[in-house]
Design a protein around this nucleic acid. Sequence first.
DNA 1: GCTGTTATCAGCCCGGCGCTCTAGCGCCG
Length: 574
Amino acid sequence: MKNYLVSFIFSDIADMLEIKGENIFKIRAYRKAARAIANLTEDVEYLVKTSSLAGIEGIGKALEEKIREIINSGTCEYYEKLKSEVPKGLVEMLKIPGLGAKKIRTIYERLNIITIEELEQAAKQRKLRGLPGIGVKTEQGILKGIEMLKGTMGKMLLPTALFLAEEIMAMLRSHPAVEKVDAAGGLRRRQELISELEIVISSNKSDEVIDGLLTYHRIKEVRERSSETLKVLLDLGIEVNFHVVEPVAFWSCLHYFTGSEEHNVRLREIAREKGYDIQKNCIVRVKSGELLYPENEEKIYGLLDMPYVIPELRENRGEIEAALKRKLPQSLEIGDIKGDLHIHSNWSDGLNSIEEIAIKARDKGYEYIAITDHSKSLKVAHGLDEERLFKQMEHIKKLNNEIKGIRILSGIEVDILSNDLLDFDDDVLKELDIVIASIHSGFSQDKEKLTRRVLKAIYNPYVNIIAHPTGRMLAKREPYEIDVDAMLKAAAETNTVLEINSSPDRLDLNDELARKAKEMGVKIVINTDTHELEGLNDIKYGVWVARRAWLEKEDVINTCTLPRLMEILSQKRK
DNA sequence: GCTGTTATCAGCCCGGCGCTCTAGCGCCG
């Protein structure tokens, strides 16, 4: 599939056009096309060959021609031309919060700065202040933004890591000398950001496998090669470590490269107490020197008198002690989720009709969904006013009579406004099946104000859920200043549910806060907040967070049957 | 750059907030 490549190039073109100050609508056309291609379920190469690209909304003649060029040659002339005109570093600067294309252009034109390192230097030397439109605060904001960016540089969001791992594993599976292959490391533990991929392969012919790996088209640099290991840097700036072992050593090796360092250190301590030495390719019975090759991970933990510990828990956050005491959580499964309670339709900024969403959700096996479009203040998202909301409620009532096998709840994602009021009065909210409240403005208010806003929403008798409670965006935006403990305490007190937002660039609450919420008696809901049909499948990311947070089925309200869910929602109003 | 419409081009997501040349612009959701 070259969908990823086409989407990547179009999005890169859009960034470069933005820096050049091109027509905003042209830029939007490229972004829209990039999104459309990324969301395609079909192979774009197949669509090119069968001349069926024309059916895709947002792809006209010019873009179709460029897609054809990219499929045939891996790039297109226009892209190469832009790359020669716009320094790469300027595009990277777009990721710095508070810094947009115009300011980047000013900085480039006035100071000839083309890398983030140079930008950081200039900001530290106070050379940016004084440029048109840039003062002390902007300069300080840029430094802060660079600091945040550095923390996530070279790290991938889960979808990218999964995509790359799948691509690599598919290639390996087709190699005749490969017996088994799996991804270990942070990806297998479902960490929110992945710094490197660890791929474990079993084969009797490691040299052949490694030679085969060297033909992988994304390899930019080979950093290390031995008889069992290959370490490479990919063109996307990502490191991949391949470990090729004899088939008998596969599970030991997969286990060895899955747990965090802290988990592995602690596990080795326990193993030593029990007379074992855990090594990369096997486990040694110390007394006899016997080498053991467990045939699965259950057997590895079994040797240490523990039940199986799922990869998501292997962080040394108490899971080893819990395992020894037989007190591990009964981890949530994706199949436990019975409905998605935060979905946007084309009544606000979603792409699909409520009918389409309901049918797709029913096909996924869901028992219920909630349509929770934006409220009127969020103009950019075409938020619903009272009149349209009531119309939507009527429409949903009608659909519930027509579409069998799934129940659609009428909801809203009501804005918690900057002045701490909700975007709708209580007499509107009380008509809905479910109310989600969330912040979309005034992120930079101080802690006291932000906390007051959220607490006021929590104490509203009609607000069931607080969505994306900390507002963080991975690699983009820090969580806003908010007294999290006060929020959790108030939520516990009022039966207000906190969301794990499954959008892979949010994952908010994160694993640690979700675990804390559980400990404080707060119920959790796992939602996608999706704006299109495919996004319903993002629920897995939220479930993974819940697994890392030690949550069980009973902690998560959308594992309940519909009657029980309605009971839980009504408890808030009592 | 695309779409809808039928001209051979107009319209395409709006508005608040915070910053800065304090009235206008850039950034953001």
